[in-house]
Design a protein around this nucleic acid. Structure first.
Lengths: 250, 250
DNA sequence: TTGCTTTACGTAACTTGTACGTAAAGATAC
DNA sequence: GTATCTTTACGTACAAGTTACGTAAAGCAA
């Protein structure tokens, strides 16, 4: 692939014409599988360089809608929980020359911003319902364990860290069922809490706390096969189901 | 004042040329005086319409720096605590035709965005150290009690509500000393908590909690004059002084 | 001096969180 | 099939934090 046939060129030309300049959205898409917290990453065309999924805001598009569109296109989900968590607005967020060179994206002919302000959203999605799809400028889209991420493009390692810290702080208010199978077991919920918090929890106290919260509804069935004693299945009660974007702000 | 000599015209022309389009910053500047939580508002030139102080981001300026500049210009303070709290990005945040007509700002000749995404920052400032200063497009800058605000321009009533809710949620982590005289008394700190929370607190429990936190340092002197029994003066210990922008994000 | 308000500190009941014990259910080993 | 191990489900004891309320000292006003 050379600079004359790179599919990113028409894409960035389209963005430059129709989207808001100096501004982007980055999505930290969290999934949970095999007792691991994961994020969805993209590998740029013709490189070994990875980044978060991201995109741009059309001039007359709501920012939440843009974030929803971007995450939807990578996951195939049309119902998802999204939360705006931070704006990354430093004038020098990363070494631009170095980063763009790593992407092998030929931007010479395109009117492009000298800097980009990025609005960070995180999404909580059901791992098993996601079909990872690369976009026009990437070859591959797949899950990475949050524990062993590579060095990412731009300042995306930092953005993921801030997203994880935000999720950690807001853990008890977030609809974590979006990350779990439906229904789920208490041990599964505990593993998820442990992955997000990065600490081990006492299972007996965790049980007590979850049941005392009154948000869980126990089903008559148990999860069979996996564990020694089959655990009961649970659902979150209707109240905090959390549809698309139940933002405090709007 | 007519459309031909309005000082906003050259201002908006300057902004249109040098600042990022489709994007602004709004500052909710909190102050505390006479047992009332207050915000600083601006009255637009030749009108009775009020709005939050705001401004625009220069193309190569950090967003935090832009917010600091904007708040600094209205308050005269060069040391201040600022916190980014939300992005207001709806495509239709308010009725544009109605709002701009209320401002009496003649924008006809100026290349202006069809919509604006606004990054909300709140500032905690020392009321007595602020010198409210109007900008180029406003006649008056003064404090308003948060209890009895007028109907503001744009969606600024909503932005203030979201700012207050954010402050309320983050109350225990925020350096509230920025809102108080230095040193301050425990009753003063309690009034401030009550104003932010909107509820009455038990003074005996409040004392206990504040002293148990270990963050307060009692001075030998007492505040004289005001109350029946003179209360001791306190300072927050060095640790959580909170200089300019100790952001979790960066 | 008497009465009132505000500060400063204390006690008791209650709730929440943490540490750890244990039996039942299922899987695996012998 | 029985013993052993792991995991779930539920329980108890103690510590820490929260809430409710009592009270004396300090200052102001009558």
């Amino acid at each position: 692939m050379n600079k004359y046939n790179h599919p990113g060129v028409p894409y960035f030309q389209h963005v430059s014409e129709h989207c808001i300049h100096y501004m982007s959205i980055d999505g930290v898409i969290f999934g949970f599988s095999e007792n691991q917290l994961k994020v969805l990453l993209l590998r740029w065309k013709g490189t070994d360089e990875w980044s978060l999924p991201g995109g741009f805001i059309y001039k007359l598009e709501s920012v939440d809608a843009a974030a929803g569109r971007i995450v939807q296109e990578r996951t195939g989900l049309n119902q998802l929980y999204l939360k705006q968590f931070h704006v990354f607005g430093d004038a020098n967020r990363y070494d631009q020359a170095d980063t763009w060179q790593r992407t092998k994206m030929p931007l010479e002919g395109i009117k492009w911003s000298e800097r980009t302000i990025s609005i960070g959203y995180y999404a909580l999605v059901n791992y098993s319902k996601v079909t990872p799809m690369p976009d026009l400028i990437t070859d591959e889209c797949r899950w990475w364990n949050i524990q062993d991420l590579p060095r990412l493009l731009f300042d995306h390692n930092h953005i993921i860290e801030v997203a994880l810290h935000s999720l950690r702080r807001e853990l008890n208010e977030q609809p974590l069922n979006h990350l779990l199978p439906d229904p789920f077991t208490i041990p599964e919920l505990q593993r998820l809490h442990e992955c997000i918090l990065g600490t081990a929890l006492d299972s007996r106290n965790f049980y007590k706390k979850m049941l005392a919260s009154g948000q869980l509804e126990r089903l008559p069935e148990r999860r069979s096969g996996t564990s020694h004693k089959a655990p009961y299945l649970y659902r979150f009660q209707e109240t905090q189901s959390g549809e698309i974007l139940p933002e405090p702000g709007t």
